[in-house]
């Protein structure tokens, strides 16, 4: 049997050392990713623990199926969240109706039509827009959009759902533009070349080849923008009028889930039914954003598997 030389012994030691190092790195990365999961679960559990006591006094039917929210009512309290949910859905849907076409269009312009120099200028400007604090955007809604909407529709106040939609659209635009543009940029040049070689013009290439190939990224961009819009608090608090009533049109003032929590949680009696009810409202919001993310994930996977 050959005697192992010093070099081989050294190598073997090294191998054991490397294995340990690999293991340590693996553990480190695993623990950092599991932290995120624990955080998410923790937030959910906290909301759930604080929300459940609310249902000792409020029936689930009243909570989910009625629209009157009046915790300090004279005769009895009312805890119906339908009006808030409708407000949130309206404001968000309105924002997306404005921001998605505008954002995707801008991304297409940046990617396909703007020259490199214009793109160099526009991209940073758009990213700066993302950094404008929400309170400043809300201010814009009060002094600029509010009066404009009031004048345009002949109503006495422009603080309503439409105002909120406009502002949220502005706030989600940078996300939608930036990520959509990245997605378009990631479409292989060979696709466009093939299209041009078949006699397509730039518009046809954009609409029929690049957009379909980038669709998963564009959808992800819109979903992220929507997540931003649903969760946004300060802007809607300032610019939507905050009336607690079932909104009928976009010209009605609305109180979204986020602004309701922000307004009321500061003034509510600790551990009262109202206090717990606000956590239940928060839980509903959590579930809504969770659902949005799940749906976008499913869509993403569907398109990705199609592309393979």
């Amino acid at each position: 049997m050959p005697v192992p030389c010093a070099y081989h012994v050294h190598m073997r030691k090294n191998a054991r050392h490397n294995r340990l190092k690999e293991e340590a790195i693996r553990l480190l990365l695993f623990s950092s990713s599991i932290t995120v999961v624990i955080l998410l679960a923790g937030i959910f559990l906290l909301l759930l623990m604080k929300a459940l006591p609310a249902f000792r006094e409020i029936s689930a039917g009243e909570f989910f199926l009625t629209g009157v929210w009046d915790p300090t009512g004279y005769e009895r309290s009312h805890y119906g969240i339908l009006a808030m949910i409708k407000s949130t859905v309206m404001v968000t849907a309105g924002a997306m109706a404005i921001a998605v076409p505008l954002g995707v269009g801008t991304a297409a312009f940046l990617n396909e039509i703007a020259g490199p120099r214009l793109r160099e200028v526009l991209k940073p400007v758009i990213e700066i827009l993302a950094g404008v604090p929400s309170v400043v955007v809300g201010f814009l809604g009060i002094v600029l959009f509010g009066p404009m909407i009031a004048k345009l529709f002949g109503i006495h106040s422009g603080l309503n759902a439409m105002n909120g939609s406009l502002l949220l659209a502005i706030m989600s635009l940078p996300t939608i533009i930036s990520i959509s543009e990245d997605a378009l940029n990631a479409v292989p040049v060979s696709f466009s070349e093939a299209s041009f070689a078949l006699g397509a013009n730039r518009w046809q290439t954009l609409v029929r080849v690049k957009m379909p190939a980038a669709v998963s990224g564009v959808i992800a961009a819109c979903m992220l923008g929507m997540g931003r819009a649903i969760g946004e608090t300060m802007t809607v608090l300032m610019a939507t009028g905050c009336a607690i009533a079932m909104p009928v049109s976009f010209l009605d003032p609305v109180r979204t889930i986020t602004s309701a929590i922000a307004i009321e949680l500061g003034e509510v009696a600790f551990n009262s039914t109202h206090y717990y009810a606000l956590f239940a409202v928060g839980l509903v919001l959590f579930c809504m954003t969770f659902a949005v993310n799940m749906v976008s994930d499913v869509i993403l996977h569907k398109y990705q598997s199609l592309q393979r």
């Binding site: 060979s190 696709f191 070349e193 299209s195 070689a197 078949l198 046809q204 029929r208």
Partner: peptide
């Protein structure tokens, strides 16, 4: 480009169905 067609070094089908790949040039025309 419609009179002078081209095939590239790396095959580059569109991420569409086989049928739609071949039909593409006709459709855009």
């Amino acid at each position: 480009r419609r009179r002078v067609g081209m095939v590239f070094q790396k095959s580059n089908p569109f991420p569409k169905s086989i049928y739609e790949n071949v039909a593409y040039g006709l459709r855009i025309g």
